[in-house]
Design a protein around this nucleic acid. Sequence first.
DNA 1: ACCCCGATCGTA
DNA 2: ACGATCGGGGTT
Length: 175
Amino acid sequence: MMRLKKDYFAQSTLDVAKDLLGKELIFREFKGFITETEAYIGQGDPACHAARGKTPRTTVMFGPAGVSYVYFIYGMYFCLNIVTEADDFPAAVLIRGLHLSQPENKNLNGPGKLCKHLGITRDHNGLDLTTSEFFYVQDKGLKPGYIATPRIGIKVGTEKLWRFIANEDIVGVQS
DNA sequence: ACCCCGATCGTA
DNA sequence: ACGATCGGGGTT
């Protein structure tokens, strides 16, 4: 079975964020390899939305691993995360880049652009990627190398190198 | 009820 | 470097 299940997402967030590079994300008719991720861990990470406890928005991050966390930002964009770790341990991996292979060959760099292109909105918050028929992640055997950098767009937690970018030569052109 | 500002992006 | 655009969440 290639599809990633709950045990996979329930691992440490940093491990999942790195390992998701090169995995294939499926959303409806769209299919593509994950090229960039960021880790957010509620405990000790002030940049994480869940850092100051459970709120209506962050509730899904406190729930089971493998569930989508989609949030609205800057009045016009949505960003897709996948919840990680054990129940009641708030953490998630932000999907920042996707190299689409279907239905077109296109590189989607940036979480806002990615969601806009795929049509991911608040309606897709809280979906279980380990059971959904149209929204899931699978392992196609790709294991790209990567680099780690500070995360983008945050003002706290910038010392952590929790952004992971797959090597271009394996999964396609970055930017 | 109010107000500040953000896990972004396109344009300058 | 900056503006667009609006919901979340802390504060009053």
